[in-house]
Structure formats: C-alpha cells, structure tokens
Simulated scan of single mutants.
Amino acid sequence: MTDLKVRVDKKKLERTAYVLKCVAHPVRISIIDLLEQEAQLTVSQLQEVLQIEQSLLSHHLTNMRDKGIVETRRQGKNVFYFLTDTTISDIIACIKGCKPVRQ
C-alpha cells in the first residue's frame, strides 16, 4: 500500500475539475460533440441542430468561452465558434463508450 500515490499533478486535476464543472450540462456536451464533428460553427448552425432558443444557446457559449473551452473567430458578419482544445473531445468518446446503468 506504500506505493499508492496520486498520479496526476495538482494543477492538471484542478483544470480538469474546472472544465468538467463547465461542461456538466447536456447542451454544453452537445455543443462539444457538434464542434468535434465540424471544426467551427455559427450560433445559427448550432441553434438549428440543437433546437433551443438563441438566448439560451448564447448563454451556454458565453460560459464556455469564459472558461476557455471555445473561442470565436469573426468572418464578415458571422461569428464562428470552435474548440480551443480538441482533447476535450475525449469526454464525448468516454460518454459514448459508457454502458447504461440498470435500475
């Protein structure tokens, strides 16, 4: 039992917890999944797929941008959202691989 130790440094654990708290919402996970499929999307494109109000979507995107999960790029009158770190897509892969819990 003396060889047991935490294998991830404290800063990485704190960043991971910070990101997981931010994405711990079905809409935000869906946004990550969509941005994994298409490198960048506009609010209109995201809204069309997610079928939620623009104001609610903007709230989620702002939260994700403030936490450093997504960034924006302006092209003319369009603002495109993209993932800042594609390793967050590993979360989606993990979720897809999870087996449903029987109740």
Rank of each mutant, 00 (worst) to 15 (best):
Q75M: 04
E48C: 00
L41A: 01
R73P: 02
S44R: 11
I32W: 03
K21E: 14
L61A: 04
Q45N: 03
I31A: 02
Q40C: 13
L35W: 10
I69E: 07
K5G: 06
L35R: 12
S55G: 09
V43C: 09
T62A: 07
S58H: 09
S30H: 02
D9E: 05
C22T: 15
K10D: 13
H60Q: 06
T16W: 07
H60I: 02
D9L: 05
C94P: 05
E48G: 01
L41R: 06
S55W: 10
C98L: 10
D90V: 13
D85E: 08
I29S: 02
P100E: 13
M64T: 11
T72V: 13
C98P: 04
Q47Y: 00
E53F: 09
D3A: 06
L50P: 01
L57S: 02
E38C: 07
N63R: 13
H60D: 05
I95N: 05
Y18D: 14
I92G: 03
V27G: 00
L41D: 00
F80W: 14
E36H: 15
S89D: 01
R28H: 04
T2M: 09
T87H: 12
L41W: 02
S58G: 12
A93L: 10
K99P: 04
L4P: 09
D3T: 11
R102M: 13
L13M: 06
C98N: 07
S30G: 05
R7Y: 14
I95S: 01
H59S: 13
Q51S: 08
D9Q: 06
V23M: 10
R102A: 09
V79M: 03
V43G: 06
D90F: 12
S55C: 10
D3I: 10
P26K: 05
R65K: 15
H59T: 13
I31T: 00
I88Q: 06
G97N: 15
S89I: 09
Q75P: 02
Q45P: 01
V49C: 00
Q47A: 01
